[in-house]
């Protein structure tokens, strides 16, 4: 291809300006109330909006909003396994697929599933699997797919909640709902259900995500990174559990509402 020699060509490598634009966000206040008015060191979760049954083709689906984190989940199945060699005669197979939409983060991602997405899918799988009665679905598979439309922090925690709601909507037998909650720890204090800015600014502290089965009182998923002492970790897990209990009535309400809509009670007349 002939090149235009008169033209001033840009540099060969370039970086997104967003990378440098994010910098001021690193100086969020480390004490006092948070940017959105919530309290520190308390299980102060963002208000959530949840609704079941948005996707008509799927057996079950759910949409969830927490602050501006938006995600949707679809459940397909139980149906026959596609690959015959992986058919399990005794119990069903659960597959999870979690993706962040390319436009969900400040920096554009790619459509191809990266290692981060794979890691999230695995964490989602490990959190959901203990709750699903897979032995009731021999020789079949249940597919759970989560799409994050807008990432505004605590994606994994909300994905767990949303996925369990979609599973319940699909009528899959479960021992319990799975609720997720996460927190970020930074210099002596912690913030529950952090936003994207809070997540990225907590450089020195750590993050923690807990998946919890509320009525069985069991932890089905736990993941932490960054440096924290054992006491902070224990306290963090306790706070996350508290946060999950705050979410519980909202999720129950959404399920009841979905059921009412699917089978309206007989009219009084």
């Amino acid at each position: 291809m002939p090149t235009d020699t008169k033209r001033v060509r840009g540099p060969e490598v370039s970086q997104s300006p967003v990378l440098f634009g994010c910098r001021p966000a690193a100086v969020l206040p480390s004490h006092g109330p948070r940017a959105d008015g919530r309290q520190r060191d308390q299980a102060d979760v963002r208000p959530v909006f949840v609704r079941c049954g948005l996707v008509s083709q799927a057996n079950g689906s759910a949409y969830m909003e927490a602050g501006s984190t938006k995600l949707m989940c679809c459940v397909y199945g139980p149906r026959e396994t596609e690959r015959k060699d992986e058919t399990d005669m005794k119990c069903g197979r659960l597959t999870t697929d979690m993706r962040l939409a390319p436009f969900s983060c400040p920096v554009r991602g790619s459509w191809i599933q990266g290692t981060q997405d794979k890691d999230l899918s695995l964490m989602l799988y490990e959190s959901l699997q203990p709750a699903v009665c897979l032995q009731k679905y021999p020789r079949s598979q249940i597919e759970v797919s989560v799409m994050v439309l807008e990432n505004s922090g605590s994606v994994l925690a909300h994905a767990v909640t949303c996925a369990s709601l979609a599973l319940a909507d699909a009528g899959i037998e479960m021992y319990d709902l799975v609720l997720g909650c996460s927190l970020c720890q930074d210099a002596g204090s912690y913030v529950v259900d952090p936003t994207y800015a809070e997540e990225t600014s907590c450089g020195s502290g750590g993050g923690l995500t807990v998946a919890f089965l509320p009525s069985l009182n069991q932890i089905s998923g736990l993941q932490s990174d960054g440096e924290m002492s054992e006491e902070t970790l224990t306290a963090g897990v306790r706070t996350c559990i508290e946060g999950c209990y705050k979410l519980y009535p909202v999720i129950q309400q959404a399920l009841i509402q979905a059921l009412r809509r699917a089978a309206p009670p007989p009219s009084e007349s």
């Binding site: 932490s224 990174d225 970790l233 306790r238």
Partner: peptide, 27 residues
Amino acid sequence: THKGAVTCARKVGGGSLDPESVFEMTE
């Protein structure tokens, strides 16, 4: 770490754990 700080914790495997046993296991 050698000072006892926890840099990562993760639950692996198919089952779930009681919160109390999680605390015992971290200790």
